[in-house]
Design a protein around this nucleic acid. Structure first.
Lengths: 224, 224
DNA sequence: TTATTAATAATAGCATTACTATCATAAATA
DNA sequence: TATTTATGATAGTAATGCTATTATTAATAA
């Protein structure tokens, strides 16, 4: 399923728009692959340039540093995910059904549609392993002032709204929303790397994470 | 309240035991302060050495690199927290009361008791901002093989057991345990830096996080 | 006591990282 | 045709992440 896909990015995230040139698109494409393979700590612009067949200085014309690039990729992902969600819940009336659908989208490994230069399924893995490093820094405040986390907040607001539709009296819609977003990823990471922190040990099925999250969310909402 | 405090550390975390010398203790003490102030990314052994009045090479005799030092500090914290928990829930019969106590300890800023060279309240802040970077790496697998995450897993197991005592039929005790541990920290971070991801915006009170976590946990357990 | 070991400080050095700057060339546009 | 614009090629610099060597001092053993 393809969507008319163009995510409007915050211009302060880049020096030159990576969407506007071949080199820029290559930077996006190969950075996803390289971060996926090496991890964000070992990822450098030099290695990326070698991968692309360009130069370090070339990459720096697009992104100030690798942190900005990570912010770009995560912002792109949250924007993309919000579109997915609005598409997949568009015609649904029942907010509880909507919410289940959202949990599914959050916790399911995306298949890659080829509508952009970004490999969404690799990017999903990057979000799981590296996503929180985008905000767990000393510069959160400044980055936030520049609205770099807006797509994440918007997504959280959308999910919070659905939660409130399900259960208007529930007191923590936004915290519950950020909890299921984070836990969709962390439980996945734990399942694959530190399985004793979860109850999904053997089979490594995303469906179990989904069941856990559904149980968590709908017991919270049933009472209120 | 002081506890007979000596946390047994995994010997593979260090080259020389930092607990065995003045320099070692200084490394622990000042690394907590410096990581707290500069953030883990900008933290270097050079800066730490300057802070202590020792040399870079001197630090390297104790810790292979800053990642190992972070692993040491996080492991120490989880070990310390498990002791706090076992002390504060020791005489309690009712597992639900126990669980509330645990949530309080997880989400409450610790006051520093001076039983060790580590400032626990700063360390608590470090765990909030930097803790997940200890495992969100490409080397999780190897680090896990060397049992560097054992204190975290043990804590999670303890909490999981209390959850199961509350509600023997509940299917996800360990995932719920890791969820409340992570969310005690993430919701705190969000509250302070990205408040729109939470429902605690204005007052910045830990008590609200505690209420949220209690609600989350006990609605999940009520049903089963 | 002296001899020996162990821990540290002082210093140097090296490969990599994280950039910035300059210049030449090719492609796109005016 | 002239000129702007993007890229490639190359250099260079300060900081980081280490390792190695030597001298000095403190603790311990003979």
């Amino acid at each position: 399923m393809k969507l008319p896909l163009h995510i409007k990015m915050n211009e302060a995230l880049f020096l030159r728009n990576p969407d506007s040139s071949e080199l820029g698109k290559n930077i996006l494409k190969h950075s996803v692959q390289l971060i996926y393979h090496t991890g964000f700590e070992a990822f450098t612009f030099k290695k990326l340039a070698e991968e692309i067949g360009s130069t370090e200085a070339g990459i720096y014309r697009y992104f100030e540093n690798k942190h900005k690039l990570l912010l770009y990729l995560t912002a792109w992902y949250w924007g993309w995910l919000e579109i997915q969600i609005s598409f997949h819940t568009n015609n649904i009336k029942d907010p509880a059904v909507k919410l289940r659908r959202v949990i599914n989208l959050l916790a399911t490994a995306v298949e890659d549609d080829d509508t952009s230069e970004v490999n969404e399924s690799l990017l999903h893995q990057i979000i799981i392993s590296e996503g929180s490093k985008a905000y767990l820094t000393k510069q959160v405040g400044e980055d936030n002032k520049q609205h770099f986390f807006k797509p994440y907040k918007d997504l959280c607001a959308v999910i919070g709204t659905i939660i409130s539709e399900c259960s208007p009296k529930y007191k923590y819609p936004k915290s519950l929303a950020s909890t299921i977003i984070e836990m969709a990823h962390f439980q996945n990471f734990f399942m694959n790397h530190l399985p004793s922190l979860t109850d999904f040990s053997k089979n490594k099925e995303e469906s179990e994470i989904i069941s856990f999250l559904n149980d968590l969310v709908f017991s919270s909402l049933k009472k209120g």
